[in-house]
Write a protein that binds this DNA or RNA. Structure first.
Length: 256
DNA sequence: ATGGTTGAATGTCAA
């Protein structure tokens, strides 16, 4: 089973990239973030025509997540389902082939100390409870744009950006409390070194070529699933194609 | 390097 994640930075603007990648790679599941479209504006028919079932949690202009699957998606759940939390479209989850798949677009945080930063901290704390509410012992995959590069070698220059958004101790501690549930970052089962990134800022010229990137798009799996994860790769060439997103695809293979 | 680029929406915000 191949499962992938992609922050599209606009599902309509990125439709050619999405369709090309689906046709070429034929993943069983693709989790998309930043669809930036209300559900009725998502390019549903184009994706369905490639044989995918789609679960949507969209909103106008910003955020928005989608879950694509070759097999039916059961028990779709959008958001936290918590009246205490804003209803911005950042979570879509469903059960695919018996596995609970949770696709998230974690808040960016903008600037350390800002209102958006405070929301990111609150969101991560609430998401810890969301994960811990999942039945223990059942297989689960959490993937998406995590907006945190948790280790020094997950960013191009840790010393330079440490303490800023995306590479801050307050993010590290909150992410740790989520994965304490028993979630394993499957990319790090296969790659131990630096220089592997999934996101490069639009505003940095030749960022990919210069290695100025971040690994903030992750795939986490519960232990039994992680044990059968045979590969996890980042599709860097897809970031170099025409009209790319600022992120690229991360894909993991599970031998089920 | 305090600008730079992009998307969605159409003035301006978010990333």
């Amino acid at each position: 089973m191949q499962i992938a994640t992609y922050n599209a930075a606009g599902s309509r603007a990125r439709l050619p990239r999405i369709l090309d990648w689906l046709e070429e790679n034929q993943p069983d599941v693709l989790a998309i973030q930043e669809t930036k479209a209300e559900n009725d504006k998502f390019p549903l028919a184009d994706i369905q025509s490639l044989g995918y079932h789609v679960a949507l949690n969209g909103q106008k202009a910003w955020n928005g997540v989608a879950l694509l699957s070759k097999t039916p998606i059961e028990d779709q759940r959008n958001g936290f389902g918590d009246p205490e939390m804003p209803e911005d479209a950042r979570i879509v989850s469903g059960v695919i082939q018996g596995i609970r798949i949770v696709n998230t677009y974690v808040p960016n945080g903008n600037t350390v100390g800002s209102e958006k930063w405070d929301y990111k901290m609150k969101w991560l704390e609430r998401f810890r409870d969301y994960i811990f509410d999942q039945p223990k012992g059942e297989p689960m995959i959490w993937l998406g744009d995590i907006n945190i590069a948790p280790q020094p070698h997950d960013v191009y220059d840790s010393a330079k950006v440490l303490g800023g958004v995306g590479h801050h101790p307050d993010e590290f501690s909150r992410l740790s409390k989520i994965v304490e549930y028993g979630l394993i970052d499957v990319f790090r089962l296969h790659e131990f070194g630096g220089g592997h990134f999934s996101y490069w800022e639009f505003t940095v010229p030749q960022a990919v070529q210069r290695g100025i990137g971040w690994r903030i798009d992750h795939i986490y799996a519960t232990e039994a699933l992680a044990e059968v994860c045979s590969s996890c790769r980042i599709d860097v060439p897809a970031r170099l194609m025409e009209k790319p997103s600022d992120h690229t695809f991360v894909v993991a293979e599970f031998d089920l």
